[in-house]
């Protein structure tokens, strides 16, 4: 389980996160939502040990602040919000970066499977820097998947930390990638994903944490967080949540809906 207690993060003199509590479990997809600049990426950086933080983060028994990078790498993969690449690696070479030393012998099989999983079979020999933004994002996801391919290994659950995994994707690939996250959790792994698309969140997440200005407004099941009042307050705009049983949950900005009618 991932347990974060009283997380504070400062950039210089500015406090970005104010004593945030956050929890995630194996077998579940936990989404972090909130407006731009509210601290989602910052929270993610604290949870993965990338940012210095006050408080305590424990991931499957490891204290994140004290754990060795290779121990953490064995149990969790991290997809950053944006990943620049310095040199002209091919797609295969990028995905291989995710593999630890031990699995190198069988790497061609795993690389191919990871690429197939994100719908990029046939892209193996392409240069990463010559791909479209959405294709690059999926190559990075394949790299992260290759790192922690088995959701459970030796009885220990593994984790995916995804910062806006579908931000550059079309609707079909959004569903594909969210399904990967869903399947990973269903197979026993843990998934923490920063999301902007509240509709996808409603469909795929088991839990939603809503952040606003560095505070957690709540963490609970989607139906308890994705509500008109909470969302309108957090995003500072009128939001309407439609929960008609027949059509499922969908969320619209209120003003746009009004204008359209």
């Amino acid at each position: 389980m991932l347990d974060a207690r009283q997380i504070t993060v400062d950039y210089g003199r500015t406090r970005i996160l104010h004593a945030v509590d956050f929890t995630a479990w194996p077998g579940r997809v936990v989404a972090i939502v909130g407006p731009n600049g509210s601290g989602k990426t910052t929270l993610m950086r604290a949870l993965t040990g990338e940012a210095e933080y006050g408080g305590q983060v424990t991931l499957s028994g490891h204290d994140i602040a004290a754990a060795k990078p290779w121990d953490l790498a064995a149990i969790r993969g991290v997809l950053p919000q944006a990943t620049p690449l310095a040199f002209p690696f091919t797609v295969v070479e990028v995905v291989r970066l995710g593999l630890s030393r031990g699995v190198a012998a069988a790497d061609t099989g795993l690389i191919g499977q990871a690429l197939a999983r994100v719908g990029l079979s046939g892209f193996e020999g392409r240069f990463y820097q010559e791909l479209s933004g959405g294709e690059q994002q999926r190559v990075q996801l394949a790299r992260v998947l290759a790192q922690v391919w088995q959701p459970v290994e030796n009885g220990t659950p593994r984790w995916l930390f995804l910062d806006e995994p579908v931000s550059a994707l079309d609707i079909g690939h959004q569903l594909q990638v969210m399904q990967i996250a869903r399947d990973y959790a269903d197979a026993g792994g843990g998934v923490v994903a920063v999301m902007h698309d509240l509709n996808l969140t409603a469909i795929f997440a088991d839990q939603v944490a809503l952040i606003s200005r560095g505070h957690i407004l709540g963490q609970a099941a989607p139906a308890d967080i994705l509500r008109d009042d909470l969302l309108s307050r957090a995003y500072d705009c009128a939001v309407r949540v439609n929960t008609a049983p027949a059509s499922g949950t969908f969320i619209l900005p209120h003003a746009a809906r009004m204008a359209a009618e």
Partner: peptide, 10 residues
């Protein structure tokens, strides 16, 4: 995880 054939971009 089975070792597949040589990959194009390798």
């Amino acid at each position: 995880i089975e070792a597949a054939a040589h990959l194009p971009g390798d």
